[in-house]
Write a protein that binds this DNA or RNA. Structure first.
Lengths: 328, 328
DNA sequence: CGCCACTATGACAACGTTGTCTTCCGGAAG
DNA sequence: CTTCCGGAAGACAACGTTGTCATAGTGGCG
């Protein structure tokens, strides 16, 4: 900046005025400064600017499990859209379902003085956030609630969706329904299990623990669950997949089975409608989830001090065929 | 920091020493400082630190077309992995295939003094980058080359892959092959068109311009192309999809057709193997693309001054069935 | 006992900006 | 001709750190 000032023959402050479009700069001077800026390729240092102004840094942090997972990348996109409309950049990080990593990312973002944080929490302990939140960094939890603190949260109706799925399958004659989901430590998986049990109750089916497998959805784990629950005598005739990862691996594991059990997936996923039979899903609007959370965050950034809100977005059963096949 | 110093009864510099794990601090003093930090919830301001040290900001920028697109989100993930291993955070942005937006994002990132930029360019003019690169911000182009400057680039073998696809289809008896891709202004689409033409030549098929449609792959555009090229008398018997978006929309448009033409997609995509028939693809390793670009970027960040490199990653034809059906 | 080396700590400047206050100048009003 | 006012520009401090240098105390050694 001082180089620009020297070249333009003005003071450093005048350069500042020009780059900030402040009034009270003579047009001729402004032009000289502009030319110098152009010539030197000057770009103002936002870090220094934010330091001096003590204002917002114009960034927000987004922490998800895995930015590569289509579910989270759609979320990322939705968040980015809102952030852009508020003139903010987005720092992203993948927690890899590891609460230490989540904490590390959050604290790193705080040290960078992001204006706010959106987090799909991996852990259940969020006491570490209290000082940060007290220091004025708003935090909104999405898809999963905070563990042990009160904070803004945007969720989907995990319970209701899974209940609906079970009832739907029961309505089509299924009595032995399996439930495959991620580890029960993950909030959404736990809630969906609750929904599964409640659905069984409402459908008048006895809940059979042996038909439930909850493990990290690797191809191997899902494959093994398929062999255990969905083949041989006494196999379940229908299955509820606890999320899109489970569903995809499940479909692959079942690809060469002679008869595919009825199936409903929590989470919609691309091409679900083009499989044979098309996969019925409990769909929810991932973009809406991201939008709602980001809007809430920016309200906080802009000073909204009301009591923390909890938003639960609706889900919708999309019947495409796979959930409507009769038990064999 | 001065609050911490006051509370611990030391100077501000000693606090700095403690938070930086510098030696020559008495253990008792360090402990008092730590306690004060804990009590006040102090977190050092990385912006100020970076300003003072004049060193790297510990961030890199990644600009893609759309972080929500599975192709780019996988790329994002790969880049993030490398960045994490180098202790950097990633700022992401979607250019939405708009070169003005691309420019805006790049300059914004530069103003934030990112240590380097990875960009899937939307435009073909990159002169605006020259001052930034001269100022020391390394830039690596990925998936598409820079327009009018020399810079590090990591690409995939668009030409070879498409040639292979056409030859493969020809080998299975197809003579009338359609090509559906994104707008020809997009580098990859253009290259794949070149590959398509070259493939026709090598397969001894006359290239028929009327079988080529290159437009932004919206469901509507692809649907219209399907009606034009793949139905009625004189329809093509096979089709090459220029990227995963085209392929997905194409599959949906063809879902209710009585006979599906043979098909090969450039880009692999999730569940391609589970469709009926499974979709043959020109696969390339998206993670490898991200890794290679990020590794290259960090080499530059760490001072590698060698001449700009151009890396072309191989592609692989994965025959799954859809490319092997005979013409009807 | 004086000097040195070493440890522990602090004072101060500087990083690149911008907010505040001041200065300077020319012209209008009294 | 003085006074005042507004426009244009600069001097300087401050944002929160850290690098450099200085200082004070402490113990060993000649």
């Amino acid at each position: 900046m001082s180089d620009v000032a020297r070249l333009a023959g003005v003071s450093i402050k005048t350069v500042s005025r020009v780059v900030n479009d402040e009034p009270a700069v003579h047009p001729d001077t402004a032009e000289r400064v502009m030319a110098a800026i152009e010539q030197l390729g000057f770009r103002r240092n936002l870090g220094a600017r934010n330091l001096r102004r003590g204002s917002t840094t114009g960034t927000i942090g987004l922490i998800v499990e895995d930015v590569g997972n289509p579910f989270y990348s759609e979320l990322n996109r939705a968040v980015e859209k809102i952030a852009t409309s508020f003139g903010r950049q987005v720092l992203t990080g993948s927690s890899e379902e590891n609460s230490d990593r989540e904490r590390e990312l959050v604290l790193e973002f705080c040290a960078r003085r992001v204006d706010g944080i959106l987090v799909v929490p991996a852990g259940m302990q969020h006491g570490y956030l209290v000082p940060e939140m007290r220091a004025g960094t708003p935090v909104v939890f999405l898809d999963r609630p905070a563990g042990d603190i009160v904070a803004d949260t945007v969720l989907v109706d995990n319970l209701g969706g899974t209940i609906e799925a079970v009832i739907h399958l029961a309505k089509h004659g299924h009595r032995r329904i399996a439930f495959l989901a991620d580890s029960p430590e993950i909030y959404t998986a736990g809630e969906r299990l609750r929904g599964f049990r409640e659905g069984c109750v409402r459908a008048g089916i006895s809940y059979d623990e042996r038909l439930v497998v909850m493990r990290t959805p690797t191809p191997e784990n899902v494959g093994e669950a398929v062999r255990t629950l969905l083949t041989g005598p006494g196999a379940a005739t229908a299955v509820v997949a606890g999320n899109n990862r489970v569903a995809v691996h499940l479909l692959r594991a079942l690809a060469h089975a002679e008869k595919r059990p009825a199936m409903i997936s929590f989470d919609d996923f691309e091409l679900a409608d083009l499989l044979d039979p098309p996969v019925s899903v409990i769909a929810h609007d991932v973009s809406a989830l991201g939008h709602a959370a980001a809007e809430l965050l920016f309200a906080r950034v802009q000073g909204d001090q009301s009591t923390p809100r909890k938003v639960v977005l609706p889900v919708q059963l999309v019947a495409r065929g796979s959930g409507e096949v009769a038990p064999s």
